[in-house]
Write a protein that binds this DNA or RNA. Structure first.
Lengths: 122, 122
DNA sequence: CGGCATCCGGCAAGATACTG
DNA sequence: CAGTATCTTGCCGGATGCCG
């Protein structure tokens, strides 16, 4: 899913969703915000593997799609920013949950299969 | 989702699923096979935007992950091949359906938002 | 802390041509 | 029809550095 930009492909619902969720960390970011992680630095702490710049980029894209909203506290020092899910963002949660659930349920299988693939592919 | 290869990131269920579904057309391919589209040429016809080579690549990856199985009819002329979902592949369908449903329900919104983004971004 | 600007490498995916 | 080999390219994402 993370992946590559989705082409303007048709009326397929799958591609519509992909267009919005495409981006290596978007599902994770959405999930984090949904869990109450609001500040960029906290999101980065929650997803250490993602570079801050990338998180910012994907947050902006999500914001443009109306999935998240940004709240700035101009008078706060240091500067404080918070992100929230919009109603539309909330409506994506079932998708995120489905993705998360399958991953949790098949974790062992995927990990062992990946390991087999690597040793064989080499 | 179609996206980029997912890093070996942890125990997060989301990334586990992403590791399997990452690939521009994988969800579409899985959905097609689930609907009874079995032969490569038919899958290609169902997803014209995807190049045959890419479809083959992603089919092979899905096969390595045990999501699909390949059946070859050696004596058939022209050569005939069919793909089927494995039980594990079937278990992914709820994820695909969730993705598809959200896309269908928010098609209008996403399309108009995309259009706005493009004209503004220019 | 939040977040641009810049440079760069990797790799998925597109295009084309060919074999069985 | 199914699948491979080769070459090219687009562009996402990683790394650094700087500014408010």
């Amino acid at each position: 899913m993370y992946e590559r930009k989705i082409p303007e492909d048709l009326d397929c619902g799958i591609n519509i969703t992909m267009k919005v969720l495409s981006g290596k960390w978007k599902p994770c970011i959405i999930d984090s915000i949904h869990k109450g992680v609001r500040r960029p630095v906290e999101i980065h702490a929650a997803i250490p593997a993602a570079a801050p710049r990338v998180i910012n980029m994907q947050l902006r894209e999500l914001e443009e799609f109306g999935i998240v909203t940004k709240k700035v506290f101009p008078d706060s020092v240091p500067l404080k920013v918070e992100y929230y899910l919009t109603p539309i963002g909330e409506s994506v949660m079932p998708v995120i949950r489905a993705i998360e659930r399958w991953g949790d349920e098949n974790k062992e299988y995927v990990i062992t299969t990946s390991a087999t693939m690597e040793s064989a592919g080499k």
